[in-house]
Amino acid sequence: MSEYSEPTGQPGGAPPAPLWEVFVRARRGLAHTHVGSLHAADAELALRNARDLYTRRQEGVSIWVLPAAAITASSPDEKDAFFDPAADKVYRHPTFYEVPEGAAHL
């Protein structure tokens, strides 16, 4: 993206603050869910920034922040190899099985 990478040399050029991914637990009993990202110099600041940015309306009871650089993600190119093999393993789903009439608590 060279078109977008000509900084104008603003004074005091600190290194850009790293990117953090933010996960919020909306309520007790729910898993943390990814809600977005933000920049902060360190984890302590990232956590506070996340609180102010993503829970202004009581959206959460718990927050995780994670350096975006620490995430290893699967790529779209690997999508078939990663996920298609699961497609024919229908026997992993309970609906695959016929329950004989009269059998309870299954």
Binding site: L38, H39, A40, L45, R48, N49, D52, L53, R56
Partner: peptide
């Protein structure tokens, strides 16, 4: 000094 801090100070 940064946009995040605008939000924090406003809070």
């Amino acid at each position: 000094p940064e946009m995040e801090e605008d939000i924090a100070l406003a809070n």
